[in-house]
């Protein structure tokens, strides 16, 4: 038996797991394989003799048009990558688990039909949706992982790792705009005895309640970071020292006035150090800013807690309601 005689190439083309169609010089379809019919819902009978814009009203693709001309006029093949073109024909894919990919992603080759000056271009469509979806899924995971790695799971605040990245950018922006940036270093007073006497569960609730109270006093553009156990840092872009002190006082008063974690108001209080990054004063950076805020916090603790201490001489620490 002669194997050659058994090879019906048209039949093979029908069964290949890729899309194949042929265009003539007038852009009319002269072949449309079963795979394409199956995926697109357009039968060969509907496709033959028609143009792509007849099948997909409004369809137009100059890159593809040029590739077809080059294939027919010059025998030059072209690859239309998914990376640069996404797809050629708008073929829907099932939506489940598609990571937002709704149309079949395609790698397309346009080549002259073998046999020299045939006046036809063969178009091959490979479905690369799975690869794209896989890459997309991996990216989503990576994004989520990154997000998780930058947040504290208990309070959902950003952590120190995020803080250093953010601060590096933000100080540059402060320099560019010549706008000062304030840092509040906050610490819950006597947290350890509270945590030990009430239990870790209540301790966690105090941390969460404290964060919720502080957040109400901050602007959208400010960020709050969990700096350590019961220590937090707030950064206030475009903020003067005076405003930062007022904000810190409001926070201190709110915290003392709230029944945090079901405790009597006043049982939870906090101390706050306030420092300023001023672009006009050279020689300071993120580390100096935090060190200064930390020093002020230590001073507030030292002077009796439940008070705000700013970084400038002459601005005395005050624990009472002087800043109302």
């Amino acid at each position: 038996m002669n194997v050659e005689a058994l090879l019906d190439f048209r039949l093979i083309c029908e069964q290949l797991p890729i899309g194949l169609f042929v265009l003539n010089r007038d852009d009319r379809i002269s072949y449309w394989n079963d795979w394409l019919a199956d995926k697109s819902g357009i039968t060969p009978a509907q496709a033959l003799g028609r143009r792509l814009e007849d099948l997909y009203p409004g369809w137009r693709n100059e890159r593809f048009q040029w590739a077809v001309e080059q294939a027919i006029d010059y025998n030059i093949p072209h690859v239309l990558s998914q990376a640069l073109n996404r797809l050629l024909l708008p073929i829907k894919v099932p939506l489940s688990e598609r990571h937002g990919v709704a149309l079949m992603q395609q790698k397309v080759s346009v080549m002259p039909l073998p046999g020299g000056d045939s006046g036809h271009a063969l178009v091959i469509i490979q479905d690369v949706t799975d690869t794209v979806v896989r890459a997309q899924a991996a990216n989503d995971v990576m994004q989520r992982f990154r997000e998780v790695s930058l947040r504290d799971p208990l309070t959902n605040l950003f952590n120190r790792r995020f803080m250093w990245e953010w601060l590096a950018q933000e100080l540059k922006s402060a320099d560019r705009n010549n706008a000062p940036l304030a840092c509040l270093m906050l610490d819950i007073d006597h947290f350890k005895p509270l945590n030990d006497s009430l239990g870790h569960q209540r301790g966690d609730e105090i941390l969460q309640g404290f964060v919720a109270t502080v957040a109400t006093q901050l602007r959208e553009s400010d960020i709050l970071v969990r700096y350590g156990g019961e220590e937090f840092a707030a950064f206030l872009p475009h903020c003067t020292l005076r405003h930062a002190i007022i904000t810190a006082q409001r926070i201190r008063q709110q915290v003392r006035g709230q029944a945090i974690a079901g405790l009597t108001p006043g049982q939870v209080t906090c101390s706050i150090g306030v420092a300023l990054y001023d672009p006009q004063l050279p020689g300071t950076g993120a580390e100096e800013l935090l060190r200064e805020a930390d020093r002020c916090l230590y001073e507030a603790k030292h002077k009796g807690r439940d008070r705000v201490c700013p970084a400038t001489e002459g601005e005395a620490c005050d624990g009472d309601d002087d800043y109302n």
Partner: peptide, 24 residues
């Protein structure tokens, strides 16, 4: 953001097409 493998594939594909256009 892309995983290294996906990014490499993306770059290679894009390069192939850019090269193809210039050569063609």
């Amino acid at each position: 953001p892309m995983l290294a493998d996906a990014l490499r594939e993306y770059e290679h594909e894009a390069m192939t097409e850019v090269g193809n256009i210039i050569i063609a």
